[in-house]
Design a protein around this nucleic acid. Structure first.
Lengths: 221, 221
DNA sequence: CGGGTGTCTAATGTCGACAATCGACGCTGG
DNA sequence: CCAGCGTCGATTGTCGACATTAGACACCCG
């Protein structure tokens, strides 16, 4: 078994993740310590630890003396977060672009093929998964731990908060085209272009998600 | 009174800050919850909250089931952190470079003058303070909250961990010259150069601090 | 003499109860 | 009817005690 042992805190973190990924917790909901402690059969102490951790990941909005809430992000905040991810990932890839071998490039191409295929078949979960692998593989060569820490934290936040929307954003052609552009820029070894392409990719993704968000809130109203 | 300490947790955070800024806590030291709780006359609960917060700021290195330690950073980690700060701040300034008015540029020049003067008089604390104001003013126009969050977190971490070394790095001429180069690049409105100059500034600063760190450890050995 | 094992200790992890605080509601007075 | 104020309930903040675990040290066995 791969899982050896987990502290209660980590179980709580996972539990809340799942609540966020499913519709168990919606933006704006309050996450009450005592309720969770009853539901999970443990005391409030590990709950608080977990909430503190999630708060620092940006997955929980904490207001002192009031409570913990599922964040309600404005369109600007969404775009800002994606923009920032583009800055970090753009640099991470650009800085080590010469480290990509021919095999690496083939692998990246393969990822893009997979994504396009999955998108055509409307297998949105697979698009997301392969897309994650694609980005992980691209950034894995950069070993700047500080950069990795920020990137993965932000990545997790965006993943959890917007997992539900990831099927609606791009047409299969767009998905394939956008990611192919990134691969091509790496192959061309043009560092400024690499950085700019990746930044643009995330800015546009953020803008689209913000638009979806707006559309949904208007439908609800 | 401008600031009212509300919770014990915040007091503990401040207390540990001071311990880190002075020599009360040295890299590698373990920060024991029970000891602090006795010293401050409070229970371990708020101590744990504070340590959790400091851990997420990168000021405390936490090992599960073992304890909390003052981080011992390798030269690479130091350089990586400064590099990352350069990435974030470089983008933050570059993205809004057109927003700087003539008055703003005068103000930036004034900061640089002050820093050079303070450095000549070996008033290192003033150099650090004015330098902080300089960077704050430059980045203040960018209202990307995600970017600001990462930048200020990283800034705080670097400030606390390396406050002691900030007098030894540059000659007065170098200090003035380096910051003037940044101001000039903004004045020239050349975005790629702005980003590159700020990045280079931080990479070099990180490299120097790492070198100082190595020299000190060798002296101690 | 060296490797492995058992115990012991000091630190973190968790618990249930109590205190302090914020926000909501209803009351009062104009 | 509305504005201001006081009370109340629910939730977070803090507490002291107990459980659990990583690491150190001594011991045993080959």
């Amino acid at each position: 078994m791969t899982i050896v042992k987990k502290t209660y805190k980590d179980q709580v973190v996972d539990h809340i993740y799942q609540m966020l990924l499913s519709d168990g917790l919606q933006p704006g909901d309050q996450v009450k310590e005592s309720l969770l402690s009853v539901q999970m059969g443990i005391s409030r102490a590990p709950i608080r630890e977990a909430l503190k951790e999630l708060m620092m990941s940006g997955l929980i909005d904490y207001r002192p003396q009031v409570g913990n809430f599922v964040p309600v992000l404005t369109p600007k905040q969404i775009i800002d977060s994606y923009t920032t991810r583009g800055i970090l990932e753009g640099y991470a890839v650009m800085a080590v672009s010469e480290a990509f071998s021919a095999d690496d490039m083939d692998r990246l191409d393969h990822y893009v093929d997979d994504m396009g295929e999955a998108a055509c078949q409307q297998q949105y979960k697979r698009v997301v998964d392969v897309g994650g692998d694609f980005h992980d593989f691209m950034t894995a060569k950069n070993n700047n731990m500080q950069l990795i820490e920020f990137t993965s934290r932000l990545s997790l936040k965006l993943h959890v908060l917007f997992y539900k929307h990831w099927g609606l954003l791009y047409s299969p052609q767009e998905i394939e085209q956008r990611h192919r552009a990134i691969v091509d820029s790496i192959r061309a070894q043009d560092k400024p272009v690499i950085e700019q392409v990746i930044r643009a990719h995330y800015v546009e993704t953020g803008t689209k998600i913000a638009a979806v968000q707006i559309a949904q809130s208007e439908t609800a109203a």
